[in-house]
Design a protein around this nucleic acid. Sequence first.
DNA 1: TAGATTGTTAATCGATTAACAATC
DNA 2: TAGATTGTTAATCGATTAACAATC
Lengths: 212, 212
Amino acid sequence: MVHRANISQATLVRLPGYLRYLTDRAKEGYEHISSTVIAKDMHLNPVQVRKDLAVASRVAGKPKAGFSLTELIRDIEDFLGFHHVANAVLMGAGQLGSALMGYEGFTNYGLNIVAAFDKNPAVQGKKVNGKPVLPVEELSRVVKENHVSIGIITVGKEHAQEVAETLIAAGIRGIWNFAPQHLLLPAEIAIKHEDMAASLAILSKKLFDLDN
Amino acid sequence: MVHRANISQATLVRLPGYLRYLTDRAKEGYEHISSTVIAKDMHLNPVQVRKDLAVASRVAGKPKAGFSLTELIRDIEDFLGFHHVANAVLMGAGQLGSALMGYEGFTNYGLNIVAAFDKNPAVQGKKVNGKPVLPVEELSRVVKENHVSIGIITVGKEHAQEVAETLIAAGIRGIWNFAPQHLLLPAEIAIKHEDMAASLAILSKKLFDLDN
DNA sequence: TAGATTGTTAATCGATTAACAATC
DNA sequence: TAGATTGTTAATCGATTAACAATC
């Protein structure tokens, strides 16, 4: 979870990218890195890199040497809340839902999927990728007992709105929607649409720009 | 595929959102909609809505009535290239890869996954969600024969860089990376990282902002 | 007609980039 | 020392929002 307020969305979105890049360099055995090198490898502006890093870390870079990799990685992980676990439930234990239950990134990101919920009795009571699959009747109890703040929606698009309302009724305050479906929700609910169409549009534009 | 050049990334990312919302309203039987209503439901500024729509469509809104839903939907779909199919290959027919092969959104978005590639002989030659799974040896041939421009990476992060290089060697020019791994690539390759960590950070910030 | 809504121009806001003195 | 690199201030760029005449 993010703990400081004064951060632009643009910077926030870039931080996980720095983290992956820096982790890579640390694995290769480097101990320091300069903003100019980061900028070149990530196709960014070096001043932007320094400003972004300064938002997440108070560690000073050393002229000539650059920044300490381990300190930088630690501070960005702290800033992004990777060391502070948040609980989530997942709605819809289909193919995409099952894949997310086993997604190797989430544990690193501080996201813990407590349980999945599915209306199919054949999977209820079973475990998928180590996560229990339960009937929706148990949602409210699980949310309360585990202080779950995030609901992940991986049902078919025709059920997404209904499932979102069920989540809100159960006490969820943040929704991560993987269904290709617009959700009409009250303003006090945080919503992030995992937008495959938008991602594809961005990739297409990059391809187009390379040709023109 | 996107066909016009002068568009900001901010607008581009919002367009698929409009599309989902407008499609919903059309399904409900509406024929016209005003930018003020769109703005309210999507938590945006009405002027921004009008400017965004004007980028994708030349259809004029009518004072008092608003915009024609069917015309708007048609134009945005055209603009985003949903009617112009692009071919892709998918690397790694594991859980996430299999889920993407069956993702209901892609066909609507104009993305056609031609085939998947996996090193596991047990799945080679089989079909997953209707898509053939092949050995990597056939990648170059498939890319050339089908004019494939996009490669989707759903292998484990430790193989992502290597797979990206294989894709580039086969002639791919755009990469959609679902592995939580930084890729070091030449500038002439278009890359879109599907960044779960960034999405989670955005959702966390929204939750945080609601509390403060 | 009266009023809601559009499209556009101007003003504001915020993010990126350039310039540069400080420093290891 | 000389030079690469940092952190910060100022300038630029672009996106968002406000204001408002035109119009159905």
